[in-house]
Simulated assay, not measured.
Amino acid sequence: MTAEVSEFHYGLITPIAAYLMACLGSVLALRCTTRSIGRGRGERKLGWLALGAVSLGCGIWTMHFIAMIGFSVDGASVSYDAGRTLLSLFVCIAVVAVGVFLVGYRGSSPVTLGTAGVITGLGVAAMHYLGMAAVHTAGAVHYDTTVVVLSVVIAVVAATAALWAAVSISTVWATVGAALVMGAAVSTMHYTGMAAVSVHVAQMQTGGQSSTSLLSFLLVMLAGPVAALILAGAIVMFDPEVVGGQRDWHPTDHPEPVGSRPYTS
């Protein structure tokens, strides 16, 4: 029989928290990438791009697993494989890094942006379904192929838009606006993917899901990525060039006015 599946075991708390984490990761990634474009030099450029990739990857992954706290299967327990859960995090960060570094070093030409967007979008989708593969429940999980394809398309479009924004938007408020849209796009991808899920169980369990143990496991898994986002936020907040969108100062940026030097014979 088909069990009733819900994404809102705790009401609107999990989707709202998940959306906010996606927005946080997006805004940090946008500011870090903006800092690197045309401003960073050598290792500094590499560092800002890496921080942006980690921020976006952790933000997307954290959004996914906060949302998964609300996942429940009526009459069946839910648990997670820790190894696959962590693997999904590394996959997310690695693939997002490919996209960020492509646009960071090669610019936003249509070919580069399209390639980076497809790679990143497929990586985000892979993270989502790898995370779903970590779910253990007393039933067989099935997916609606059409809805899965739709979720992948949304992931690619969202990733392409995110990378375009990273290299095209520099002001703080425009970045915040773009992050809000990106957070909505990533969350839409997640819940579209979850709409494809159905669970078939041979016999309903009387105990249902152990919400306390599941919540404890996911909170432990979330601790590291959330700490990474907090650290990235601290770095961004204490760098005025990231917050204000200012350029590095060079002597040639402000040439000395003619006649400002004292006369010497």
Score class of each variant (00 low, 15 high):
139 G>K: 06
134 A>L: 09
153 V>W: 01
161 A>I: 06
117 G>Q: 05
135 V>S: 05
116 A>P: 01
147 V>F: 05
157 V>Q: 02
158 A>L: 02
180 L>G: 15
137 T>L: 08
120 T>L: 05
169 I>W: 08
185 A>Q: 03
124 V>H: 07
140 A>I: 11
187 S>W: 04
185 A>G: 08
127 M>S: 06
188 T>S: 15
182 M>V: 14
166 A>W: 07
115 T>S: 10
165 A>L: 06
192 T>C: 14
144 D>C: 04
125 A>I: 05
175 T>R: 13
173 W>L: 15
126 A>M: 14
145 T>S: 12
162 A>G: 11
144 D>N: 13
134 A>H: 11
124 V>A: 13
168 S>Q: 10
129 Y>E: 12
153 V>I: 11
115 T>E: 05
116 A>L: 09
152 V>C: 09
187 S>L: 15
128 H>W: 06
138 A>E: 14
131 G>V: 07
153 V>N: 04
118 V>K: 02
193 G>N: 05
185 A>T: 13
127 M>P: 07
158 A>Q: 06
128 H>Q: 15
124 V>R: 03
138 A>T: 12
136 H>S: 14
120 T>C: 12
182 M>T: 14
141 V>C: 00
121 G>F: 07
159 A>T: 08
154 I>Q: 05
177 G>I: 10
128 H>Y: 13
152 V>H: 06
143 Y>S: 03
193 G>H: 00
172 V>M: 13
188 T>H: 02
188 T>R: 03
196 A>I: 08
184 A>I: 10
131 G>L: 10
193 G>C: 08
176 V>W: 15
185 A>N: 07
135 V>M: 14
196 A>Y: 07
134 A>M: 11
117 G>H: 00
163 L>I: 06
195 A>L: 07
153 V>A: 07
143 Y>A: 02
122 L>G: 13
175 T>K: 10
124 V>S: 09
184 A>G: 08
140 A>L: 11
149 V>S: 00
125 A>Y: 00
176 V>P: 04
159 A>S: 13
165 A>I: 01
186 V>P: 01
130 L>R: 12
122 L>N: 11
177 G>Y: 11
153 V>H: 00
178 A>F: 13
175 T>S: 15
137 T>V: 07
116 A>W: 02
193 G>A: 09
159 A>Y: 06
115 T>V: 10
180 L>N: 09
163 L>N: 01
130 L>M: 15
147 V>T: 11
185 A>V: 04
164 W>S: 13
170 S>E: 14
126 A>F: 13
156 V>Y: 02
154 I>A: 05
153 V>K: 03
166 A>P: 04
119 I>V: 15
142 H>L: 07
190 H>C: 01
116 A>V: 00
133 A>C: 10
155 A>T: 08
154 I>C: 07
125 A>T: 08
166 A>C: 09
116 A>N: 03
171 T>N: 15
150 L>H: 02
145 T>G: 04
175 T>F: 00
185 A>L: 15
158 A>M: 01
141 V>T: 12
191 Y>D: 04
174 A>E: 12
149 V>K: 00
128 H>P: 12
141 V>D: 03
194 M>G: 00
137 T>P: 01
179 A>C: 01
134 A>R: 10
183 G>L: 10
144 D>F: 08
147 V>M: 09
177 G>T: 13
142 H>D: 11
144 D>M: 10
173 W>I: 09
195 A>W: 04
194 M>P: 03
166 A>F: 02
187 S>H: 03
184 A>P: 05
190 H>S: 06
141 V>M: 14
